[in-house]
Computed example of a mutant assay.
Amino acid sequence: MTHDPERTRDLARTLARRRFLGVAAGTTAAALLGAHTATAAVPAAVPAPQGHRRLLPPGRLGIQLYTLRDQTGSLGFARVFEELARYHYDEVEFAGYTQGSAGPINLAQLKRLLRDNGLRGVGSHVGYSSTDPNAYTFATNLTQVLDDAEALGLPYVGTPSSPNRYGDTVDAWKRAAEEFNTYGAAARARGLRFYHHNHAEEFSFATDDPRIRLYDVLLAETDPDLVFLEMDIFWAYVAQYRFSRRPDDTPAPFEPLDYVLKAPNRYPLFHVKDGEHDTAEQDGYRMVDVGDGDIDYRRFLATVNRRKGCDPRDHHWIVERDDAVDPAANPAGSLSTAERSARHLRGLRRQEH
């Protein structure tokens, strides 16, 4: 019989979850959830993908838990992780370590829940700075941030905050880049990697020199061995729509994928977030579940995976939808977003030529 590593991992996950939950035979996760939430019905589990021509590298599908913040805040991490395992996610990226009304939880318990559900923690979003000296940020509490990431066994810890702490001039971003280098060095000393996650505004232009794109300052002024990047693909394409011309209206087109191809080893993490092109929106796109929008993820993954000298296993593809908890924008609910997005990405196949 041919050995199938993914099938073996799925079986291990199932056995681990049964041991953890102690659920009697025949009891389903959907029944457990139904007694505790009035949100949309829990989707069926994603079927285990078949074949060996998948576009998504094995073991590299993750989700940013901000997408599911309503569920972790009411049901708790244990039941959310159970669902993510059913959808065949491999990894999660944290956006905080508390679970609201589900009750207190410590990092040791959280790490055990990951293990029991066959998941890995791949990273964590932490604020860059705050006017509150007691805030949990890199600027105010670097040691604790790194302690917590290390306790959870995370390989990456980073910030989704803009580097505009000191303004949007070239020198202001150079100053922020210097601090990012400091955080990166401190992370590396712990065996971790520090990263920055972009939104659209990073691709805007310096207020004191409209010829210069601020993201280019960040890349040039940070040490590539200390500061890594998580490209949020949706926000990068929003930026392409919004900042394709300089303030003086001269053309300044750019292609987000080109940034990755120039330095693929600086981009270990990606946010896979889809959008439907809509010029009535200021951003030019309206968020939707992955696979329902206009961003060509087949092309994006295939191009990155084919890059010479680039090992596909070095990249992690993390589902996120910022407004998944908004009933008006997403009436099917955040669990449906997690399920449908995983189904689409795992279903992508390499195109044969």
Results as ranks from 00 to 15, higher is better:
Asn305Gly: 14
Arg211Tyr: 06
Phe300Gln: 11
Gln64Pro: 03
Thr39Ser: 11
Ala185Tyr: 10
Trp173Val: 00
Val288Tyr: 01
Ala149Leu: 01
Gly127Tyr: 01
Ala151Asp: 04
Asp116Ser: 10
Ile318Ala: 04
Ser130Ile: 07
Ser162Cys: 12
Arg79Pro: 10
Gln282Val: 14
Arg86Asn: 04
Tyr87Met: 12
Asn265Asp: 15
Asp132Ser: 12
Arg246Thr: 06
Asp311Asn: 15
Val227Gly: 02
Thr8Gln: 15
Thr182Glu: 05
His271Met: 11
Ser244Asp: 02
Glu201Thr: 15
Leu32His: 14
Pro155Arg: 10
Val272Gln: 04
Gln109Cys: 13
Gly184Tyr: 00
Tyr267Ile: 04
Thr337Asn: 03
Tyr128Glu: 06
Ala24Asn: 07
Arg299Gln: 09
Ala338Gln: 05
Ala41Ile: 13
His316Leu: 08
Gln144Cys: 07
Leu345Ile: 02
Tyr136Asp: 09
Phe180Cys: 03
Arg286Leu: 10
Val260Leu: 09
Val319Phe: 03
Met1Ala: 14
Pro210Gly: 10
Leu154Pro: 13
Ala176Lys: 03
Val170Trp: 07
Leu114His: 00
Ser341Ala: 12
Gly59Lys: 09
Ala29Phe: 00
Ala25Phe: 13
Leu55Ile: 03
Ala200Asp: 05
Tyr87Ser: 07
Thr143Ile: 05
Val23Ala: 11
Asp314Ala: 09
His271Asp: 12
Ala302Cys: 06
Thr2Tyr: 06
Gly100Gln: 12
Met287Tyr: 08
Glu230Lys: 05
Arg306Gln: 12
Leu345Val: 00
Ala12Met: 01
Asn106Gln: 09
Arg9Lys: 11
Pro253Asp: 11
Glu179Arg: 13
Val325Ala: 09
Asn106His: 14
Asn330Tyr: 01
Ala220Met: 15
Lys308Asn: 11
Ala12Glu: 04
Ala280Glu: 14
Phe138Gln: 13
Arg19Trp: 14
Ala44Gly: 11
Asp10Glu: 11
Ser101Asp: 02
